[in-house]
């Protein structure tokens, strides 16, 4: 059989006759692009260092606790789990890492689009500025949610596997699952919306990240400093015997301390976490501001959470509604 030579034909420009999926496809494309941008997918190795590093940082405490549990289990038996932090403590432990993750990664989603003027290219397509914002928010929210759940999943898996009777453990602690899920959503919302709102006002990622971290440090320092409780003990002794003693505790801002404690950014989700997991803040446990806030009615921490998520969300929406293209 005679072999035929291959030929390349230039078909020229072809009109597109396939499906057009409109606005929903556009929203999904923006969401996917947001996830890829934050995780550094499709970019060089350097773009992946930060997300992978921060992801490992959130998982590591859980892995360490489970490892400790595995060593303690043969010695302490079923009581071993009492020696390590549980699901109620985990979010507080990793909240610093989550704040840093939010501060650094959220600007990646908004700042480059405005700095490089890509935004008009999106908004002349079948998208509105609300579609753009919602897709970007959901992309970041989804990543943070996976991040906050990942550590808890590792911890729960360790606690179940090291329990003497797994079925008993699950039956006794099943309430933790909806609490973890619910609290994860609250934390992911808080971590996403604030840094995104800050990123909406600058084209420089570093400025946005620095502002969030500085605000977090400053507000935490101020609120903890002003709510720190100093106690003095007075004792009355007669004939070498203590007959009475009294404790006098004061705070720099006096009775305003519980309200000043609400300023603590780290405490916004910690206070809700204590409520969701039904944890009583004992004197000497937790930060000064969280102890002060514990004196208030539950409506206050809830209100503060709503303000710290609602106001940035409104600012974000307003900013993109008024943006000049």
């Amino acid at each position: 059989m005679k072999a035929r030579e291959a030929e390349v034909f230039d078909l020229g420009y072809q009109r597109y006759t396939g499906p057009r999926e409109g606005r929903n496809r556009a929203r999904l494309a923006l969401f996917e692009n947001g996830v890829r941008t934050v995780l550094g997918i499709g970019r060089g190795g350097r773009a992946k260092i930060l997300p992978v590093g921060l992801f490992l940082a959130v998982i590591t405490p859980a892995a360490v606790f489970v490892t400790i549990l595995a060593f303690l289990d043969p010695i302490a038996g079923d009581d071993a789990s009492q020696f390590i932090p549980g699901p109620a403590d985990y979010y507080s432990i990793v909240s610093v890492i989550l704040i840093i993750f939010g501060a650094i990664m959220a600007p990646e989603l908004l700042c480059p689009d405005r700095r490089d003027n890509v935004l008009p290219l999106y908004l002349v397509r079948p998208l509105t500025s609300n579609d753009y914002l919602i897709a970007r928010f959901l992309a970041f929210f989804a990543i943070v949610l996976v991040l906050v759940y990942a550590g808890q999943i590792v911890l729960q898996a360790g606690l179940i596997l090291t329990a003497g009777d797994q079925v008993d453990y699950i039956r006794d602690n099943w309430q933790d699952v909806p609490r973890i899920l619910f609290m994860g959503v609250l934390i992911a919302t808080f971590i996403s919306v604030g840094p995104l709102a800050v990123a909406a006002f600058t084209t420089r990622r570093a400025y946005a990240a620095a502002f969030v971290i500085a605000a977090w440090l400053l507000l935490n320092s101020i609120s903890d400093g002003l709510t720190f409780q100093e106690c003095t003990f007075e004792t009355v002794a007669e004939d070498g015997r203590i007959t009475s003693s009294s404790e006098d505790c004061t705070r720099p801002v006096g009775d305003l301390a519980p309200y000043v404690g609400l300023l603590n950014l780290g405490g916004v989700t910690d206070n809700l976490n204590n409520m969701v997991f039904d944890v009583d803040v004992e004197p000497g446990q937790g930060s000064p501001s969280s102890m002060a806030v514990a004196e208030l009615h539950d409506a206050f921490p809830i209100g503060v959470y709503v303000l710290w998520t609602g106001i940035p969300a409104l600012l974000l929406w307003h900013r993109y509604r008024r943006i000049r293209l």
Binding site: A26, A29, E32, N33, R43, L127
Partner: peptide, 19 residues
């Protein structure tokens, strides 16, 4: 966008147009 390749950018823009 400076960090994207032309191929990736065009694919993304086609999808944002509903393709």
């Amino acid at each position: 966008p400076k960090s994207m390749t032309a191929s990736e950018f065009l694919m993304h823009m086609a999808q944002v147009s509903g393709i």
